[in-house]
Design a protein around this nucleic acid. Structure first.
Length: 104
DNA sequence: GTACTGACCAGAT
DNA sequence: CATCTGGCCAGTA
């Protein structure tokens, strides 16, 4: 595995402004790796607890959180986003049309 | 070496 | 709306 790739991914994630989100696919594309959404997921999984990278601003293509429901990290992600003003709809997903950082 | 899995996704059916 | 299909690619068994 190439560590440079993870660096690029993390750097892109760091660019997402507060109150906005980006999808895994968006982050991959911004990092110059179109179609490598899965790598983004892996890269985020490697982040140490307590990192300053705003990993919570990355959601899946449906605007939902791709972490096991009930896990502490899932709870943390939702809490942090709501604290930044991101609104979750009844189905547990955010409105990407309003909160997406890298609009097409 | 194959087979399955996963913080995924777009397009077709 | 729900499912399926094929693409992606590193880790694990």
């Amino acid at each position: 595995m190439e560590p440079d790739i993870n660096q690029r991914i993390w750097q892109v994630v760091a660019l997402i402004p507060p109150g906005k989100v980006a999808t895994y696919g968006d982050v991959a594309a911004q990092a110059g790796l179109p179609g490598a959404a899965r790598r983004v997921g892996r890269a985020l999984k490697l982040l140490p607890t307590g990192t300053r990278i705003p990993w919570h601003r990355v959601v899946n293509a449906q605007g939902g959180i791709s972490l096991p429901p009930g896990s502490s990290s899932q709870y943390t992600q939702r809490e942090r986003l709501e604290a930044e003003g991101v609104v979750f709809k009844a189905n547990g997903a955010v409105d990407l049309r309003r909160f997406r950082a890298f609009q097409p």
